[in-house]
Design a protein around this nucleic acid. Structure first.
Lengths: 339, 339
DNA sequence: CTGTTAGCGCTTTCAA
DNA sequence: TTGAAAGCGCTAACAG
């Protein structure tokens, strides 16, 4: 059996309360006692049992992170940001996978509640938030990231999807691009809806209404991007520029373009939301909209901790939705095409 | 305050012991009582407090996963496999990040111990296992994945790095490739060391000793792959084929090749360890060695649970090191070069 | 400054 | 088949 506070107390010849005070660095303890106790702790290699501690204090100093995909670079980078920030405050992170399913999302949340996490950060698996409503009942501090969930109100950290897209397209329009294609994601998810809105808004300012055949929607995965770019590229004539709604579809689309470079009548210029490790890889000229991914996580963690603290002190502010700014990034090396 | 077993007991007019028995589906409880208790549980929306349960039972049904990088597709896919398997057995996963630092690795392990996890799965941050020795003292069931750690003996799940590489190179040699370059990772990590060994072994069977200038070692990240491929490509003449020791360096190297396609005297054929989402993206002809990534995780979870059970029943088998087989994958679409 | 004591929510003998 | 009671390891009044 592991060594407990009792063992330490006995060997140090003090009460368990004293040991507890030393552990929690209670100031009103004599230096002599403290040193003696610390010595014993060292000697016995005692480690607090945070299970017991949590049972008493009703706080676990643990928060849950719910992602729709565990091997998704975007969400995991957000998680990284969350962890960085949490850690500075002595909190820990449990990462759970909802597998893009609202049902599993609820399952995982129940698990996290059972584990008595102090709060959760959720990248919702779907645009509807009905299944999250019970969190309000439970009173579990919650922050959404990346996506909003209809019918569920809570703190949230997002980026300026519409504005970011608007700016990118606007930039290209000013440079003379006019013939656009659009590769969209699942519009039941707020980011994809907002990006589409930004796209349309920029075009309409220039009096352009995109050709229906040039607008495609898929899921948000690599294969989907590949397939949609193929469809666009096979049109006669194909669009001269294509906006792609996220990183993974950008990768897929680029894959298609690179494979078929020789066969295409002309270079297709690409603009894409997200700028991550491989955005620049493929050598297709592009303009990307970078999200501050780590920052999203950091901010979400901060908001959650504020929420947790405020709940403890009974001064809960109303839910806040924060939008972080995006940034345009030009990838045009070795390319004759100017964005 | 959350509803407890006591509230349920009171409303159902039974003792807490009875409620506990219902929760844990103890057979010797009358159907009538059970139904009544379940009704109250439903009505009150009672959820067990797994903190309290763990304190009593000394098992948390939680295992920790330690990864050197949280936004790393490879390790996160392993984690996914772990989670899939754990879940079937009612276990949960806490993912922690060692940030490629042995010190942080120890910190995170202490945290996990404090959280009373039943076991840990570790992708070690370094080739030396000295800092892990204390786990033996603690008696925490441990499984290593992907990498071994010198001086620390435990269960482990790896792949046949040397053999996989050997087979790939051997295949290419038979097809007439002879002029090889090598892009290696950190050889203090077992997988990179083993892959290098496999490379050398295949060549030596054909009586070839690689030119020193053709053999490069870096860390295992994208940038490193880019830089080393640049060095190789700028040799006169450059190697005709290059073996790259992992996915991320493959991506970086490919980036270099695509960007400089026009400038290169000839197509450089690429062989690479790992086959993941983007291995096929760049349109550079290649042969890759696919690891069963999810399977690594699944197997590690199984081994860990066996270890946990066996410890509980006092029949611990000796540590086992399992090597899973790899598989060759040919990516040659749109390429004139035949692997 | 330190000890005593009473639980946190649950499980589990031991009795009945 | 059920209940009473002890206790998991720790913390936090309350005393002293």
């Amino acid at each position: 059996m592991a060594v407990t506070i009792k063992d330490v107390a006995k060997l140090a010849d003090v009460s368990t309360a004293t040991v507890s005070r030393v552990i929690n660095s209670d100031p009103r303890i004599s230096a002599a006692t403290r040193d003696r106790v610390l010595g014993v702790i060292e000697k016995l290699n005692y480690k607090v049992n945070s299970i017991a501690r949590s049972l008493k204090s009703n706080r676990t100093c643990t928060v849950g992170f719910l992602t729709p995909e565990i091997a998704n670079e975007f969400f995991m980078t957000v998680a990284q940001g969350v962890e960085n920030s949490l850690r500075e405050r002595g909190y820990n992170l449990i990462i759970c996978n909802s597998n893009e399913s609202p049902d599993e999302e609820v399952e995982r949340l129940e698990l996290l509640i059972e584990k008595c996490v102090d709060g959760v950060i959720i990248a919702p698996s779907t645009g509807s938030g009905e299944h999250l409503r019970f969190l309000e009942q439970v009173g579990l501090p919650t922050v959404l990231v990346d996506r909003l969930a209809d019918g569920f109100t809570s703190d949230a950290v997002l980026v300026d999807n519409a504005t970011g897209t608007y700016k990118a397209i606007h930039h290209l329009l000013k440079r003379g691009h006019t013939n656009f294609g659009f590769i969209g994601g699942d519009v039941s998810l707020t980011p994809f809806r907002e990006r589409y809105e930004g796209f349309l808004r920029a075009l309409s300012e220039f009096g352009i209404h995109p050709d229906e055949a040039h607008v495609k929607f898929g899921n948000y995965h690599v294969d989907s991007g590949y397939a949609m770019m193929k469809e666009l590229a096979e049109l006669t004539p194909p669009p001269a520029s294509v906006f792609i709604s996220n990183y993974f579809m950008h990768i897929g689309a680029t894959q298609y373009l690179v494979e078929n470079r020789a066969r295409l009548p002309r270079t297709i210029f690409v603009a894409s939301f997200d700028d991550m490790a491989l955005s620049a890889v493929a050598g297709v000229p592009s303009l990307t909209i970078a999200q501050p991914v780590l920052q999203i996580g950091r901010r979400a963690a901060e908001m959650l901790l504020e929420r947790i603290d405020s709940r403890a002190s009974g001064t809960a502010p109303p839910p806040r939705i924060e939008r972080l700014p995006t940034r345009l990034v030009f990838h045009d090396r070795n390319s004759k095409a100017q964005p």
